[in-house]
Design a binder for these strands. Structure first.
Lengths: 196, 196
DNA sequence: GACTTGATGTATGCGGTGCTCACTTCGCAC
DNA sequence: GTGCGAAGTGAGCACCGCATACATCAAGTC
């Protein structure tokens, strides 16, 4: 009990407040710094260090949260796809998440501080597993590891390329349509080109 | 004339020296800062600002150089592939570059400061075009845009996932073999699963 | 009910960063 | 020879992550 939002004792539930403030800054597209979120939360610049040993720990907490959000997003009102088209939609949802929350996505994937945070590793593994399950379900005759990594790579790569402006599109919808089309085109490539 | 390596006038060819120092730090896997490369080069901390308006400009110069290196790497003693296997090798070379020069690769792709540097944009476009040409050559019956973006995404995504330790492998060779296998598996997926 | 204790937050300060601005130096065109 | 403008310097600002020493205060113990 007493675990509600009601502030607890000293100044409040700082840890959660810090994560919330950091997440807000990320969503706003702003740079995020320990000192800035401390300011935002109304505590001294060094207060966050009572809850996170260093910046990376905070980043890992945010990334883990983001990975859980991504997983929820990919499963929300969507059964595991059992068609290639359904799989393409799942891929588009993955890219859609990246485009909607670019700064968070970069935090989730753009760094290698992994083995540090068990929470983060577990959340990443859950996303990996979700994708692998969906892909091997649709392509049961392919090597499960090979096709799963390739499929993940395809959507992840397109997400990164659009995020970093190596590819651009006039609107999110157009980009997502492109992702679907590209997924289908690659998966169909060999059978389109009748070659054995 | 006098455009050789011989130092020119005031202190030397600072611009080139700074780029070289920064590149060296990147290869060494170290963080790279304006002040650090100035120190390395033996000039004052603010001297670099005579040659680069800000940090991003230097980053763009490095990224452009890296993109040119990547392109050279992908074309070096390798004709444009005309088989799926050759294309898989090209993809593996792309990932190989990323693994060999991770910090540089992240610089090249991990940021969006594009429209700033025409040089960088052009170098990126050249890489894009090279991949697109190779892919559409091997898959002439697929939509060229769709399959090219998907193919690029696949190798780029796997490069990022391995770079950021979302995927791991015991050795570079094993990773590259995995990239080849995944590329072939995805491209073959639809025709493996006999489904129309 | 006073006392201790340990978790939480503060104050101060170090070394690092990108960057600005006023200054000096010096090669080169005239 | 002289002036000019490009190239380099030095001091300084605001910010950063982080360590260290100190203050506060809820809670458990006698």
């Amino acid at each position: 009990m007493a675990s509600t939002v009601k502030t607890t004792y000293h100044h409040g539930d700082l840890r959660a407040a810090l994560i919330a403030a950091a997440m807000e800054m990320l969503e706003r597209g702003q740079e995020f710094s320990i000192r800035a979120i401390a300011r935002e939360t109304g505590v001294s610049p060094t207060a966050p260090y009572r809850h996170f040993p260093d910046r990376d720990a905070l980043v890992s907490a945010l990334a883990a949260q983001g990975l859980r959000d991504l997983e929820a997003n990919l499963t929300a009102d969507r059964p595991l796809p059992d068609s290639v088209e359904g799989l393409a939609d799942l891929g588009a949802a993955y890219v859609g998440f990246a485009l909607r929350r670019p700064a968070l996505f970069r935090l989730m994937f753009g760094d290698e501080c992994d083995r540090e945070s068990e929470e983060r590793v577990r959340a990443a593994a859950a996303v990996h597993e979700l994708l692998a399950t969906a892909i091997t379900r649709v392509f049961p005759d392919s090597d499960p590891v090979d096709v799963a990594l390739g499929g993940w790579g395809l959507v992840h790569g397109m997400a990164c390329l659009y995020l970093d402006r190596k590819l651009t599109g006039p609107s999110v919808d157009v980009v997502l349509a492109q992702v679907r089309a590209s997924f289908l085109a690659v998966v169909d490539a060999r059978s389109s080109t009748q070659r054995g």
